[in-house]
Each structure stands twice: as structure tokens, then as C-alpha cells.
Measured scan of single mutants.
Amino acid sequence: MTEYKLVVVGAGGVGKSALTIQLIQNHFVDEYDPTIEDSYRKQVVIDGETCLLDILDTAGQEEYSAMRDQYMRTGEGFLCVFAINNTKSFEDIHHYREQIKRVKDSEDVPMVLVGNKCDLPSRTVDTKQAQDLARSYGIPFIETSAKTRQGVDDAFYTLVREIRKHKEKMSKDGKKKKKKSKTKCVIM
């Protein structure tokens, strides 16, 4: 069974824990209790493949930012979460993405942009803004509501699919490099 290491990042209060708990335990946590770091595991079937999701729910508070490099190193894919009623959390996505790329030393890291709290009427981040940002990053965008469960499975499952595509691409690139290195030079 394939294991996928997913990391949920975003500013404090955007609903990272609520999304994760909704996926794992099928219930909505409405009281806000700032996370330092929590880890969850769940076995699911995605596109006919049974897999184990190892999900790291991270601290959004700035005082825990020193811990970010460590979990970013171990993560295979990242859910970059903002709240649709919090423009600052949307603007912060850029910083999370840049930090992930720096730590992973790669421009090509599996990510999904997630606009959470889409059940709320007080939207300050337009869907088109988020779609445009995701398009500019070359990553999928999904709106979710941890409260109603809308888009929750889709967000995590899409990230797994992005990781699969990335692994497939990397193995193809690896095979191309191996083929090239088999060419021999004969000096007579």
C-alpha cells in the first residue's frame, strides 16, 4: 500500500485542523484551538488504489514558523489553505509557496490551493482571484467548507493525484537520464 505524506499549511484560523478532522473523523470542530502540530493517518481508496494518507496539520501562528522547514522537508505534497473571508490569509499563500519551493529546492512541488469556509456569506476573496492565482502557479484550486464537508475529500484526493503525477514524471525523467548515460565512448 502506497503511503502519501501530505502537509496542510496556511495562516492561523483558516480551518486547516477543521478540514483535516472532517476528512479523518467526519465531524466539524467549530471551536478554535490553535494547533502546534498534529499528525493523522487514514486509509482510503483513490482511483481504485488503496493508500495510506499521513497528514500533518501544522501551526499557522507566526511564533511556530521555525518548525516549518522541518515538516516541509518531509512532506510530499501540500494543501495551501486560505479562508475566503480573510484576504490576508490569501496573500500569505505566496509566502508559504515560496518557502516550500526553497526548502524542497524545487520549482515543481505537488500543491493544491484550497479556499476554505465557502459556506460563509462574508467572502472577501473572489473565486476568480483564487483561480487566477492557482493557474499562475500551475496547481489545482478547490473551494471547501469544513463545516458542510463540501470539497473536503476532493481537496485531499486531488493532492494525492498531483503527487502521483509528480512521481510518474520524475521516474520518466530518471529513465531518460539513465538511457543517456548508457551511451559509451570508444577510443581507438
Results as ranks from 00 to 15, higher is better:
V9N: 06
G10K: 02
A11I: 14
G13R: 10
E63P: 06
Y32Q: 04
Q43K: 12
D30N: 10
L53Q: 07
V29H: 12
K16S: 11
L56C: 15
S17V: 00
A11F: 14
D38I: 01
D38A: 05
L52R: 15
E49H: 12
D33C: 02
N26E: 13
R41K: 14
A18V: 09
G48N: 10
L52W: 13
I46N: 12
I21N: 06
D54A: 11
T35A: 00
E31F: 14
G12P: 12
T58N: 03
G60P: 03
F28G: 01
I46F: 12
Q43P: 13
E63G: 05
P34C: 04
E37G: 15
G15Q: 00
I36Q: 05
I21C: 08
S39C: 10
T35W: 02
Y40N: 00
G48Y: 08
A11P: 10
C51N: 12
C51P: 13
L23V: 10
D54S: 15
D33H: 03
L56V: 15
E31N: 06
V8H: 03
E3G: 14
A59I: 03
V9A: 08
L23G: 12
T20M: 05
D38P: 03
I24E: 05
T35Y: 00
V8S: 05
Y40V: 02
I46S: 11
L23H: 14
D38C: 03
Q61M: 11
I46W: 08
Y4T: 13
D38H: 03
D30P: 09
G13C: 12
K5L: 02
L56F: 07
V44D: 13
T35P: 00
N26S: 14
L6S: 04
V8N: 01
D54R: 14
Q22R: 11
G10F: 03
G48P: 09
S39F: 05
G13Q: 11
I55H: 05
G48H: 11
E3K: 14
D54C: 09
T58C: 06
P34Q: 04
N26H: 12
I36C: 02
Q61C: 12
I24P: 01
I36K: 00
S17D: 00
